[in-house]
Amino acid sequence: MKTTMLMIAMMAGSAWVSSAQAQDAWPTRPVQMVVIAGAGGGSDYVFRLLSRELEKNTGQAFSVVNQAQGGGVVGMTTYTNAEPDGYTLGQMSPFAQYRVLGQADFTSESFTPIALVNMDPAAVHVAADSNLESLQDIVDALKADPTSLTISCGGTCNASWDIPFVSLMLDEGVDVTQLNLVPAKGAAAGLQELTSGGMDVVLSSLPETDSLREAGLVENVAVFAEQRLDRYPDVPTVEEAVGEPVTGGTWRGVAGPAGMSPALVEAIEAQVKAAFDAEAFQQGMRDRGFGPVWMNAEELGDFMAEHEQQTERVLGELRQ
């Protein structure tokens, strides 16, 4: 029996050598996708949709590995420390705040960007029975007294939803260090605080408010996007509401550890693009109100650098 095992090991060993040589024929074995959120969440969903298409197209298994601990630091650490052989990839989402907050030391150099597949703008919500009726009301109130409103970050603060909001307030000349930003355990928990009267404003994406808006309990006053979203034609953009063209939100892409070869990146990018273009992926994204947005490796790299700058500016101001 021991000899059988040894034989299997040897066979496997030789197969491994040959696969390392034929790198452009990616993938020749199963790929791990590290998702920095728990099973069943939005990120998990996007990556399972994508993995299903990749599995279909390549004939290899793509296993989604959920590592949500430490707000995503654990998952990003896992895949940035992996071999840059294209068989451990991971979720690329806002990462610059980790370094500013002293949680981890990722920079855009820690990753090899591959592609962006989704972007969801942040939005501003108030309770239906609130005195605040528009983004202008909120800006006016905060200008008069920055501490007058309690604002839920719809998740952890210093993150995707509050950074564009604070950025807008900086432009409007509000003293942002005085803002009363309160973290929540996810958008649902923040929205619950809104309906129970514990909060004045909640920041999150639009689809997350669907059921409470239907119930007539929550109103969306503005979305941090360049244009109104097809799914929410009655929600004005920030520019329409107050005249400042501020955008921002969360985004999800595919990346790998630093040091992947350009040829390998190209091969993976092509496969991800095919999966992204598949009708099943597009339909799946629409079903849940996620915005499918494509960026190739190069565009994603530029975008990540831009994200680092915006985050450092806003967090620098907040933490003065």
């Binding site: 601990q69 430490g70 630091v73 654990v74 705040q97 002293g102 949680q103 952890t156 355990k185």
Partner: peptide
């Protein structure tokens, strides 16, 4: 949970995860 400041993590991402 509020400020995101690492506590007792000794610089390890695993301990940061709690």
């Amino acid at each position: 949970p509020v400020s995101g400041i690492p506590r007792f993590s000794l610089g390890s991402p695993d301990l940061l995860g709690g």
